[in-house]
Design a protein around this nucleic acid. Structure first.
Length: 350
DNA sequence: CAATCGCTTCACT
DNA sequence: CTAACGAGTGAAGCGATTG
């Protein structure tokens, strides 16, 4: 039974900002999606623990965060910088020689071999202290018999924690835990579960699995086995190829001017084409998204007959698609997406 | 019937 | 007081279509 070490960086983006600007430490700080000048039009991506004390959380409109805390410090998200630190963490972890899955920019799952919980904890302590000493960043680690279990143990131990749950302690760990703590359960699924009278993992484990399958499909099977401590999902050593890539942008002001919209679309298409090219990706489907002033969204997409990586083809196809949208309402956000991709590092089988 | 298409829904930071 | 506030990215699922 291979043990999984799940490592999650603590408030990663804000911690990175604090690392390069220590004067921010100890003050409430958020990293948001928008530039400094337009910060009130964006949302909070990450906030440090000082900011959380005010009730600020990720996804919250930045304007609302400011109404909760006047002295809030703000930084615009700098993805390239965070990614470079993430890369350094990954290479430090790889040095241990175990299979590693980079779950996201700030989460990593490490699959051990024959090591038991004792050695897993020692390894985890080593990882935490080297990340702390080399990068000045804190993380939390959860250890368990499956990837999802380890993630939940990790979430529970935040921040700067280290915890493990083995086969024998799993039932106790899970029993009273709310279903909203399950990875993959968001607001909608939570409400649906509550509607069925299922509030805790214990409730879930006592539910007829057939009922879960009919209500949630294959996701119901995941919920059931997880709740019974029987989900030992393994760390996959290979990185699954991305299925799609997109870029979107909120306009300075909502507009129904098609030439202005088209200009933004072409801009995004060119960025996207560059990103795809850098990653060695070709694609067969392109999509355009518009969010109107009333926040309703429309998506249209078209597929080519063959794979392409051509920036000009992406641009012209996206612009053409953009012109086919209704413009009764002004548009406040536009996006361009590519999907049905092939190529990249892990060359997909076709 | 399986794969693909166009689109919607949902989760998460 | 209540409603409005509200970015960006990606995966999965669904019904319709097609070979």
């Amino acid at each position: 039974m291979a043990i999984v070490i799940y490592l999650d960086m603590d408030h990663f983006f804000t911690a990175c900002e604090e690392a390069r600007n220590p004067s921010l430490k100890g003050k409430p700080l958020v990293v948001g999606t928008a530039s400094e000048e337009k910060k009130l039009r964006g949302v909070v991506q990450t906030c440090n623990y000082e900011a959380r004390k005010f009730g600020i959380h990720s996804g919250m409109p930045t304007s609302q965060a400011y109404s909760l805390c006047k002295e809030l410090a703000y930084k615009e998200s700098d993805d390239a910088y965070y990614q470079s630190i993430s890369d350094r963490i990954l290479s430090m972890l790889k040095a241990y020689g175990f299979p590693i899955e980079a779950i996201s920019i700030d989460e990593f799952a490490i699959g051990l071999g024959k090591e038991g919980y004792g050695s897993a904890i020692l390894l985890a302590k080593g990882m935490m202290s080297s990340i702390s000493s080399e990068l000045g960043l804190a993380c939390t680690i959860g250890i368990s018999f499956g990837k999802t279990m380890a993630k939940m143990v990790c979430d529970d131990a935040k921040p700067a924690g280290l915890a493990s749950v083995d086969e024998h302690s799993a039932a106790g760990f899970l029993h009273d835990k709310g279903v909203e703590k399950i990875p993959g359960v968001g607001l909608k699924t939570y409400e649906k579960l509550r509607g069925l009278g299922i509030n805790t993992m214990g409730d879930l484990a006592a539910t007829d699995p057939q009922k879960l399958l009919s209500a949630f499909g294959s996701f119901g099977g995941y919920l059931y086995s997880l709740s019974r401590g029987q989900l030992a999902d393994k760390v996959s050593d290979s990185v699954p190829a991305a299925a799609s890539l997109s870029r979107e942008k909120t306009l300075d002001a909502p507009t129904a001017d098609i030439s202005l919209i088209e200009k933004e679309i072409l801009e995004l298409a060119s960025i996207l084409a560059k990103n795809a090219g850098d990653a060695g990706l070709v694609f067969k489907t392109i999509g355009v998204k518009m969010r109107y002033s009333d926040f309703t969204e429309k998506v249209k997409s078209r597929s080519f007959l063959h794979y392409t990586g051509s920036p000009s083809l992406l641009g012209s196809a996206a612009a053409k698609l953009a012109r086919s949208f209704p413009l009764e309402l002004p548009v406040r956000k536009v996006g361009v997406r590519i999907s049905s991709m092939a190529g990249g590092k892990g060359q997909r089988k076709l």
